[in-house]
Design a protein around this nucleic acid. Structure first.
Lengths: 232, 232
DNA sequence: CGCATCCTTGATGACACTCAATAATGGTGG
DNA sequence: CCACCATTATTGAGTGTCATCAAGGATGCG
């Protein structure tokens, strides 16, 4: 996979296509960098949308709020990903929130500037459209899983997906510190159930856990759990 | 709401923006009309994507398959809507199926032609991007509901949404003949549960049912059920 | 050292899925 | 027009999964 000088994946990183770093000085007036601490909120549901964000480094979660202490994590984002694009639509109000999972640097681009760029840069617009299309496919796959899969199966798929997205570090752990609470929110279940299911996966010798680090031992087994109840 | 001569809503109907009916004769070579009977499949999951469809008249369901007799209805579509756009992405394989719910006429446009149109017609591309953005927002709202809402609440929201989308006919019925099976698939539950919940809604004096026709009596009550367990 | 937060585990109950049996409906052919 | 079969509707009973509640243990922090 080709990487550019920012360390982003050239195939998916729209930021690089927009080429914010190297563009005309004119763009400087329309972008700002923000540094976020772990746990810091970038934007919140019902906030007005004023721009769009590109993640330079770090990791974030995008989540949808639900009754004080419940949420659904809709997506994780890492360096090279866009955040805040869900705000683009008929109403300029975020339907989701975004929170940093670790120290994160984002590049903010004014919406009006971004939009006028899209009007001019057909290729970028095309890429953005394709990006939405893929997101939509993902979203609907997840929706079906939520509707028809057991919690254990959902956790299994979630772990596989996370490993695929974030890769593993030198210890073989999934390259993302994920609290049980976040795992629960991502799979649409409660803290306790997520905990119990993780224990089952450990007993099944499918994964190994030390603290917040998760290592997938038996990819096969996880995959089998994902396929359960699923006959083509 | 402004309607064009095809009877489509000018704000949402991409077909009209593309102006298939009135365009250069050249386009004729790249489009075909198909007429579908009730229950007829337009395309199926895992089929290769060769084009995109615009609905002239009729209604369809877009659904995602799951183990022989289970499915999740992802979306309903009516005249003026696009179908098959979910196939656009990295892989040219449909992630969903589309089935006519009543006699339906669709207009098929070759993918290569559609894509090259997008490359040229920036405005159309922009609209398409916005359309995806809205679809994504919808999808994620539905996802959260699926995760955190009771079946009764989901059915209540589903009925409200269907009335909003399809409107009512002169008898005040929702303008869509929906089988219980489809209602169940749309709300991610089983036939029997959907049936029971509908009965509860009838006892609550929220809706009235005669055959496959549904009339919403108490919009307030449905809305309240949708909001249950939901505190901002 | 005391408080607060997070983790861990058990018990309980509700919601919703499954299975099953019967009733209604609709379509088909004689 | 009716008998027949196939499909769809309706209802009940049983069961399992998972959310909720509660309480004790661990961990961190001032």
């Amino acid at each position: 996979m080709k990487k550019d000088k920012h360390g982003c994946d050239l195939n998916t990183c729209l930021m690089c296509r927009l080429c914010l770093k190297d563009w005309l000085p004119a763009i400087e007036a329309h972008r700002t960098n923000y540094v976020l601490n772990k746990g810091q909120l970038l934007f919140s549901e019902h906030d007005a949308v004023t721009g769009i964000y590109f993640i330079y480094s770090g990791k974030m979660k995008v989540h949808k709020h639900w009754s004080k202490d419940k949420e659904l994590i809709v997506r994780f984002a890492k360096s090279g990903d866009i955040v805040g694009h869900r705000g683009i639509g008929t109403e300029l109000v975020y339907p989701v929130s975004a929170t940093a999972l670790e120290p994160t640097t984002v590049c903010y681009v004014e919406l009006s500037f971004f939009k006028s760029t899209l009007k001019v840069n057909n290729e970028l617009l095309y890429e953005l459209m394709m990006f939405y299309a893929r997101e939509l496919q993902e979203s609907e796959k997840k929706m079906r899983n939520l509707a028809h899969m057991s919690v254990k199966g959902r956790i299994a798929t979630a772990l596989s997906m996370l490993q695929e997205k974030f890769g593993t570090n030198k210890e073989g752990h999934i390259n993302l510190q994920l609290s049980r609470q976040d795992l629960a929110s991502y799979t649409g279940t409660t803290y306790e159930t997520a905990f119990r299911m993780m224990n089952e996966l450990i007993n099944d010798n499918a994964v190994e856990v030390s603290g917040k680090n998760i290592r997938i031992i038996n990819q096969e087994k996880l995959h089998k759990l994902s396929q359960e109840h699923m006959e083509e």
